[in-house]
Design a binder for these strands. Structure first.
Lengths: 166, 166
DNA sequence: GAATCTGATTGTATTACGCAAGCAGTTTTC
DNA sequence: GAAAACTGCTTGCGTAATACAATCAGATTC
C-alpha cells in the first residue's frame, strides 16, 4: 500500500515530501506569484525549472495532497493547479524560512521585500494571507483585506524605485 | 569567488542549503538529540543515514556556516560538531515544519510529542530553547529553564508509558 | 491553414544517493 | 602489551534524481 517511511518523525515526514530543491519553489510561485498553469510556472520562475522536473513535481504534489489539478473551463487543454488546505498551511513555513534566509544569506532587496513584510506582519498577517489563498484556490470567503496585493505592490514599488535610480 | 545562485530569493537561497533529504535531519539530531560526534549521528538516527552522506553533509554545513567543527580534547581523534548562531536560528523553522507535519502527515506519537510541545510553547519557548542551544554550543549563559530537558522528559515518559501498556 | 499556445514526454548526460566494505590512528580491555 | 573496539571518515559501485535540449499532439488564434 504505502511506501515505507524512514521514520514517523514530523520533520522527517515533511522532508520526505518537501525535501528537494524544487517542490517549495513551485509552491512559492503558486502562492506568492499566483501561477496556476504549467507554462506560467515553467517560464515565469526566477530559477528556471526544467519542464520534466516541473511535471514530476506537480504530479507528486497532487499525489501528496498539497495541490489539486482541475480542467480550466476557458481552454480545453489547460490544467488549473490549485493549492489545497495542506498547501495553504505552508504559509508559516515560508514566513520563517524566508526570515532565516533574509538574516543569513545574500538575498536581493527586490526578492526579499515580500519576505520582510510577511515576517513583520506576524501570525495575524499569515492567517489573513491563508484566508486569502483559501478564497482564491478553494472558493472560500475573502479576507477583510488582501495581503497578496500588498505584497505585490511593495515588490513592484521597489522594482520601480530601483529602475528609476538606475 | 561565489558559486552562482539560482536567484536572490530568500526561499531559494535557503533551499540551496537545506533543500535535500538529509541536512535538516542532521541538524535536528544535533539540536534535539544533542548529538555532537560523527558516530552518534551515524548510529543513533531514526532514519539511518549513510556514512558518506553524513560526511558530505557535515562538510557542507560547516562550509555554509551552520556548524563548526573542533577537536575534542578528551579524544585525539574525535571531532566535535557545534551549532553556530546560523544553525541555532533554525529553531522556528523546525517548530513550524514540525507543526505542519503533525497536522497533515502520519506521524508517530512518540516522535511528535516534542514537536507538539514546541508548537504549543510558541515563540517565547523557542527563544528559551535557542538560548539553551547557545549555552551548549557557543558557551553563552544558560537560560532560566532548560527546554531540552523538558522535551526529552516528555518523550521518555511517553515511551515508558507506551511500553508499560504493551 | 499557418502560427502559436497548451501540458507535457523523450533522450541523453551528469550529479546525487544508498549500501557495503575498508582504513589508519587512538583508546580501552584484559 | 597485544587484541579488541572505537574514532572519523573514504572508496567502490549500482541505482535514482536532476539538468538540458528537443520534440509532440491537440487546441486555439490569426
Amino acid at each position: 500500500m504505502n511506501e515505507a517511511h524512514r521514520s514517523g518523525c514530523p520533520i522527517n515526514l515533511t522532508l520526505e515530501i518537501l525535501g528537494d530543491r524544487w517542490s517549495l519553489i513551485v509552491l512559492r510561485d503558486m502562492m506568492f506569484g499566483n501561477r496556476r498553469h504549467f507554462r506560467e510556472l515553467l517560464l515565469k520562475s526566477e530559477e528556471g525549472i526544467a519542464s520534466n522536473i516541473l511535471a514530476d513535481r506537480l504530479k507528486r504534489l497532487v499525489d501528496k495532497g498539497l495541490l489539486t489539478r482541475t480542467a480550466d473551463p476557458s481552454h480545453k487543454q489547460k490544467a488549473l493547479y490549485s493549492l489545497s488546505e495542506m498547501g495553504i498551511a505552508l504559509v508559516p513555513v515560508f514566513a520563517v524560512m524566508g526570515a532565516w534566509g533574509r538574516k543569513f544569506l545574500p538575498v536581493t532587496e527586490e526578492l526579499s521585500i515580500r519576505a520582510e513584510l510577511l515576517e513583520n506582519g506576524g501570525p495575524r498577517m499569515w492567517e489573513d494571507f491563508m484566508q486569502e489563498l483559501r478564497n482564491i484556490h478553494l472558493g472560500a470567503p475573502p479576507p477583510a483585506q488582501s495581503v497578496l496585493a500588498g505584497l505585490q505592490k511593495a515588490y513592484e514599488d521597489l522594482v520601480a524605485a530601483k529602475s528609476a535610480v538606475a
